[in-house]
Design a protein around this nucleic acid. Structure first.
Lengths: 225, 225
DNA sequence: TAGATTGTTAATCGATTAACAATC
DNA sequence: TAGATTGTTAATCGATTAACAATC
């Protein structure tokens, strides 16, 4: 609150990657690492790694480097993985069910407490131990259970009053798989997974050289010569 | 080739977003727009929008703005959406099947030609009209069919020689849902969907203020006063 | 001790924002 | 014509890289 010095999104986006590589190193029994060693396996400069870490503290030792496990755990704490996170799922289509079944989330402290759908065929059934409720019970559920994160996996056209219900709850974050940007109330953090955007980006990359050339030649005089 | 002036990743990541908003405006019958109007609905500065577009050409008219449909189509072309893309799916779990069923991909020219899995229960069946083959036929399939993009949705531990097979094929891009960074041969473009990273990022955002405070107080002297 | 590597400051590079002439 | 808005150049801001003193 006093020192509201935000960390840049570029840094934050690298944290899970550090966590992943440190976890692998730790699993391989590597007790000690350094910004130089990490930079080689991660394709990030050693300087950037040290700068990134220094946003949060000093975790290394001069002349030695970093203790793999210690750094792994520290980054885990920065990412909030030392806490339990309670999730609910709204929308139990294929993607939603995939999330319910992905054990890796549970092992990192993210557990689905309930799921919601409007399909009669799904309501009352259970996926990986998680019960699917009628979505009409959503507002009531959220007012009687403390939930940290909502995973939103309903089709774009079926949102209805879901956003309102979430805004009136004490939910802290929304993991949004719907292919649109949704504004929630102040205080609710949003992380988007826009699959269509991702696929379009891949399509762009594939033809990038050709595309740049096309537009350079067409529109920029000097590019012809 | 002559003017290999790469476009920054920051710009590229905004292109699908422009495409999305322009598509919505077009659907609403809005014939004409401007960097100012777009900036208001997209929370991007007008200046940045104009800079981004100018990487590819001049699509507007002074004093007028942009023709919604024209700009929509131009960005579509930049993203390669004027071409057909043939995909195959490797790994027919829940996420894979979700991809097979998502009609929006097809409507943008991305079609799944075949799917592969190792489960006896799935081989020979069909999901949304796409036949599931034995993964042992993958190398043979890729050598006899021209495929642009591979969607990789197998569990981390079951990769086997899949990467080798892809590297030996003429595939242009890999849409990777496996929670690890995979190096493919030169020329194959990769787009990652790291769901665990995404969820960790959300977890970070939720506790961001607290985390920054914790580390500031602990490690930075001046933050205490 | 000599070598290694951090934490951190300074330099560079790149991306975003501002400004404005051109012109519809 | 007057007003609007582009395309583009210049200014600013922020992120990355380089350098190095501190020190294990």
């Amino acid at each position: 609150m006093p020192n509201e010095q935000k960390i840049s999104r570029a840094v934050v986006s690298r944290l899970p990657k550090y966590y992943r590589y440190l976890g692998e190193a730790h699993d391989q029994g590597i007790k000690r690492t350094s910004s130089k060693k990490l930079s080689e396996i991660m394709n990030i400069t050693a300087s950037q790694i040290r700068q990134d870490l220094n946003n949060f503290g000093s975790f290394g030792l001069q002349g030695y480097g970093y203790d793999t496990e210690l750094l792994y755990n520290e980054i885990g704490k920065i990412l909030g993985l030392d806490k339990k996170h309670k999730l609910i799922l709204i929308g139990c289509g294929k993607i939603g069910q995939a999330l319910l079944k992905y054990e890796y989330f549970t092992s990192r402290g993210f557990t689905f407490e309930a799921a919601f759908d409007k399909s009669e065929d799904l309501i009352g059934t259970t996926v990986n131990g998680v019960k699917i409720h009628d979505v009409s019970e959503l507002a009531d559920y959220l007012s009687t259970h403390h939930i940290n994160i909502v995973a939103l996996t309903i089709p774009k056209g079926h949102i209805g009053n879901t956003v309102d219900i979430i805004n009136k709850s004490s939910v802290q974050g929304v993991w949004n798989f719907i292919n649109m940007d949704i504004e929630f109330r102040e205080g609710i953090k949003v992380e988007n997974v826009h699959l269509m955007d991702s696929l379009m980006t891949l399509s762009y990359k594939i033809d990038e050289d050709e595309i740049i050339n096309r537009y350079n030649v067409t529109t920029k005089g000097e590019a012809i010569k």
